[in-house]
């Protein structure tokens, strides 16, 4: 059932290709801004790289959260989804994964290229990409809760970030920490497994919470 939603959302996303690219370009610009701000000194950049890339990924995925439900909310398809016999949680899971495919995956593919900008070593790049691959779906899933809660509110965009950022912090800590641990030779196994745990937990809990929030917002 959620496959249908994913397929539909991907179709919609491809038609409005601009939305996909804006998030990606935002990510690239933010990541490239930091060296300009901090200075070209390579050692500083290398230690800063994981944090910068992760924070940029966080902000990029959060920017596009607003659009996750708003288009369906405005033209009424969201109400149909609520009324449909299918379980709302599965539908929401589909929407969140579609959002991840549209915003998360391009970031993951882009991060090695940007990592080179920060002169990261090969295995650090590998760990960075792996951590982003594990982390970005969690961002979309938790973000779905925020998007559902602030549906149709004025100033919703800012509000979503206020609601959701504190919840992103564990993912940020272990995402950036994974790269740093592997760079320090400690091995990123622990961090990546924790990110995996977050992923599984949010896969189970977030859709249900988003479904509850959607019902509340759509009353």
């Amino acid at each position: 059932m959620s496959l249908w939603v994913i397929q539909r959302d991907l179709l919609l996303a491809i038609r409005r290709r601009a939305d996909v690219l804006t998030t990606l370009f935002f990510f690239i610009i933010v990541v490239s801004l930091f060296p300009l701000g901090v200075g070209p000194e390579i050692n500083i950049l290398r230690t800063m790289a994981p944090g910068v890339v992760w924070v940029a990924a966080l902000l990029a995925s959060m920017l596009s959260l607003g659009r996750m439900f708003s288009s369906d909310y405005l033209d009424g398809t969201l109400e149909q989804m609520l009324l449909s016999p299918q379980s709302l949680a599965m539908l929401v899971l589909g929407k969140a994964l579609a959002h991840w495919l549209v915003t998360g995956v391009p970031l993951v593919l882009m991060s090695p290229v940007l990592g080179i900008q920060y002169d990261l070593s090969a295995d650090a790049l590998l760990v960075l990409t792996a951590s982003l691959l594990l982390g970005t779906p969690v961002l979309s899933l938790i973000g779905a809760i925020g998007a559902a809660l602030t549906l149709g509110l004025r100033g919703g965009g800012v509000l979503v970030s206020l609601l959701v950022l504190p919840l992103y912090i564990p993912v940020l800590i272990f995402g950036a920490g994974a790269v740093e641990a592997s760079a320090a030779g400690l091995g990123a196994g622990a961090h990546l497994s924790l990110l995996g745990a977050f992923l599984l937990a949010s896969l189970v809990l977030a859709p249900w919470a988003t479904a509850v929030s959607l019902r509340i917002s759509m009353e």
Binding site: I145, L149, L163, P166, L167, I169, P170, I173, F174, L194, L205, A209, V212, S213, I216
Partner: peptide
């Protein structure tokens, strides 16, 4: 909803 989601996250945030 946000309070309950928050309270679930407090231990996670604290330990991370």
């Amino acid at each position: 909803v946000i309070a309950l989601v928050g309270v679930v996250n407090i231990p996670i945030i604290y330990f991370s």
